[in-house]
Design a binder for these strands. Structure first.
Length: 147
RNA sequence: UAGCAAGGGGGCUCUAUCGCUGCAUACUUUUAGUAUGAAGAGGAAAGUCCGAGCAAUAUAGAGCACCGUUCUUUUUAAUUGAAAGAUCUUCGUGAGAGGAUAGUAGCGCAGAAGAAAAUAACCGCCAUUGGCUCAUCAUCGGUGGUAAGGGUGAGAAGGUGGUGUAAGAGACCACCAGCGUAGGUAGUGAUAUCGACGGCUGUGUGCCUAACGGAUUGCAAGACCAUGUAAACCAGUGUUUAAGGGCUGCUCGCCUAAGCUGGAGGGUAGGUUGCUAAAGAGUAGAGGUGACUCUACUAUUAGAUAGAUGAUAGAGAAUCUUUUUUAGAUUACAGGACUCGGCUUAUACCCCUUGCUUUUUU
RNA sequence: GGUCCGUUCGUCUAACGGUUAGGACGCAAGAUUUUCAUUCUUGUAAUAGGGGUUCGAUUCCCCUACGGACUA
């Protein structure tokens, strides 16, 4: 039976807090062209057991001067994340049933050319798989240490 | 037909699926969530070059200083915008386009070049005199007259021709160019034009003068709520002195102690509001050369807050290329952040009106 | 978002609207030295781009581009 996936992308999943963003840029990062991905995995404070993911995307002025092009790229990043985020969430929820995890992710656009939408989507899938592997490891470690 | 000039208008459309933003309604309800509905970026949203609204702070008042504007008239909420004109000037065959222009009573300055950059005598010209010479010419020096000539320069003592003279000179005359004075005519006015009178006549720039205008900071302004708590701050009362402080840079001038009573803040991270109906838009009519004004009618939720309009698929439209009916390519500049008006800059392509030039054809 | 400032040889800088835009370091050539360095001489090279005002702009005015500061 296939689930009816919700492709929603509301305000809860966007990263807005300033302190969180400052913490995000101190942590580790992955490179996969054309993105630089910054991520930060922490325990959750909420009462219920769930996985919360917050996302930020930014395109620097170094890429291009015109605001239209930068906006278009941001929109495409958000779109590709929206369509592919189930790759990260669904398996994580299976693993971490009793955990409280928040993952903050920042997508930073690096390429100086205007990449096509398909390549963006491909790289987005790669990134999400990588992130899943990392998150799974961290879950295991946390379980072992907790026990 | 081609190439141009001026002005004006438009700025790709539709469908499906998955999403984003706030709003309204209904349901569940602790926050909030779900469903439905209708709506959701421009001509420049940009630059921030001007102006205004709005807000806070300051302000007894006056003078000086400082800053801005500057041909005329009209227009606008608006001191730099707009329209219609005036004079001069540059570009263009032309339609047209760009630029400059308050006043000169007084004072200052003008590199290099040049004799001289303004009550001009360096060379030259003329007269006279001294030396040299037997004497004259020539030549050297003194005194005086003289702006006709002198390679410069952005600018050279109004120009041309005569009279006149020792040589010359607006010294005088004729014509021409400008200026001033008091007038006529046309115009609201800048100004144009007409004759009269006056020999009045170099260029640029700054100071200066005149008229008009100007408090400062900006929605991250500010207001409220919650959080939170040092005795600075505010209000009232009150009395003495003016050192110090404040009030726009200065001057005059003005205000201001402590104490007592009451109220409540700063910093940090938030929320609500400010925040979208307006000096608005469209249509029609009237007035005006025009900018613009007046009247009537009509319709009208963009309001985000690391910042919403996207992605995919399909169909059509326009232009271009190849080719002859398909195929391919292209569809600009560019994204609200309190609001409005103007200016400036960027802009594929299409349409309309008026006008100019050249060639060809009829 | 708002308010401002700046741009001069390869680098750091100077300039009253007026001579061929000056100086230091660097670079190149030559001299000195057995050679290198030091030193000396000579040279090279710039007003961000485009308009305007002016007889004449690095300088004054306007537009564009780039860089920077302050402001929660």
């Amino acid at each position: 039976m296939e689930k009816i996936r919700s492709y929603r992308f509301g305000k809860d999943e966007k990263l807005c807090n300033v302190n969180d963003i400052a913490a995000l840029f101190k942590d580790e990062h992955i490179f996969t062209f054309p993105f630089k991905v910054v991520y930060n995995i922490t325990d959750n404070d909420s009462e219920q057991n769930c996985v919360k993911i917050k996302v930020l995307c930014s395109v620097g002025k170094r890429y291009s001067k015109s605001a239209v092009k930068r906006n278009l790229i941001k929109r495409r990043i958000r779109e590709s994340y929206r369509l592919n985020k189930h790759l990260l969430i669904e398996p994580l929820e299976e693993i971490a049933v009793n955990k409280k995890i928040t993952i903050n992710i920042g997508f930073i656009y690096i390429s100086k050319k205007e990449e096509e939408y398909e390549t963006q989507q491909k790289s987005m899938r790669k990134i999400l798989q990588k992130l899943y592997n990392i998150a799974a490891k961290s879950c295991d470690i946390s379980t072992t240490t907790a026990d």
